[in-house]
Write a protein that binds this DNA or RNA. Sequence first.
DNA 1: TAGTGGTCTAGACCACTGG
DNA 2: CAGTGGTCTAGACCACTAG
Lengths: 236, 236
Amino acid sequence: MNIPRYKQIQEDLKKRIQKGDYKVGDYLPSEHELCSAFTITRTTARKALEELQKEGFIIRQHGKGSQVRERRDSLGLLTVKGFSEAVAQQVETEFLRRPELTSWDFDLSFKPTAREMKTQCLYFSRLRYIDHQPVMVEDNWLAVEKVPGFEKQEFVEGSFFKTLSQRYLIEIIGSEQELRAIAASEKVAGLLQVKKGAPVLHITVKYLTSIPGYYIYSQLFCQTDQFPIGNSFFVQ
Amino acid sequence: MNIPRYKQIQEDLKKRIQKGDYKVGDYLPSEHELCSAFTITRTTARKALEELQKEGFIIRQHGKGSQVRERRDSLGLLTVKGFSEAVAQQVETEFLRRPELTSWDFDLSFKPTAREMKTQCLYFSRLRYIDHQPVMVEDNWLAVEKVPGFEKQEFVEGSFFKTLSQRYLIEIIGSEQELRAIAASEKVAGLLQVKKGAPVLHITVKYLTSIPGYYIYSQLFCQTDQFPIGNSFFVQ
DNA sequence: TAGTGGTCTAGACCACTGG
DNA sequence: CAGTGGTCTAGACCACTAG
């Protein structure tokens, strides 16, 4: 198997939670029980449970066990999961600009590297809807260097990140984000169907990829009245 | 020692990075080198390095090593670190309301539990400055049940979380957050020295503590013009 | 190829939780 | 008290990176 054992067990447990075999408040099998059930050692069992904790499915407590947690379903945007995976509700996407080659002329707090500037910039822009209501404008910039032909094809399952992963073997390994509350410009206000000058959330993102020195830059304008941006976080 | 070995090594390496012994771009000693240097096994060395990665100090790459990362110094607020620890710049704090006993009457998307409602509510409010400029209004609510006498004492080193930890042995183990862009009310605008109606970032937080069912509720109003809220995040 | 981190085994002792 | 997770040892094999 190429997929690590802990990952298999992690996904197995996750599916059982999602199917309802383990409900909110239930305890998963203890580390020792997982060891005998899957014929693994505690290191592997712990890794699977720690990952589930990171993802917010369970809370682990010393002396007690791993308890299934209630998950809030506002946009879990501040993770690198991407929009489509993060939202449970009905999501639609409309391209404002399909992927096209441009020059590097975006104005974010993050700046492209000199190396990236040497190649052309691939740009696309999308408008995202939840329950048929526009909630987010998204602009994306990346160096075309590592994604040749990107502009000539459809997205894998409508997902940008899935396309990167499956067609170019590029994985997202992290992100840096900056958040600001700003007044909506006329253009953004029109797209999000709010008044010009209304407060919107502006998020600039620099995604780190599995290719060193190769980044993806994004900006989001979010209408947070009905759908606040959510985030949950665990330590230990 | 009560402090785990991996934690000691993590802090040791962190201090060396902060002192400049390891600069941005440098590689930390490999896992094997740490093993012999500290007389530990790889499990322990890995744990220390993984924690440093979580905190954003290093990037670990298979086949290469642990490289010191540039840390952006906007407010790393979306972690549970708390304000004083997260910001490098000069920070001042002014109490708008010192800790006092009140009834539960806050109106956040998070609701106190029935158990919490049975005891009185401890409330305090602070205004935070960076470089003598007001940037954040912070309101906090928690059940007085687990923090008797809180209102009668000073904070440990000015830090709310340190006070909880050292005086009441309560640790923060996670948080859930919701972010919205809103128009500043007259009161908030006055405190943050912006115009009434100006966009401000509103963050509501439910902190999970080491006491099951015991939470801390906060709301923040942030003026993000000069100091955007920052966040960095890593997977794997 | 040598060196790195990723995964895993098979144990051990400890601290915490609850009855 | 029994059961849980937290920490740690002492190995092993593998996949990835770079010269």
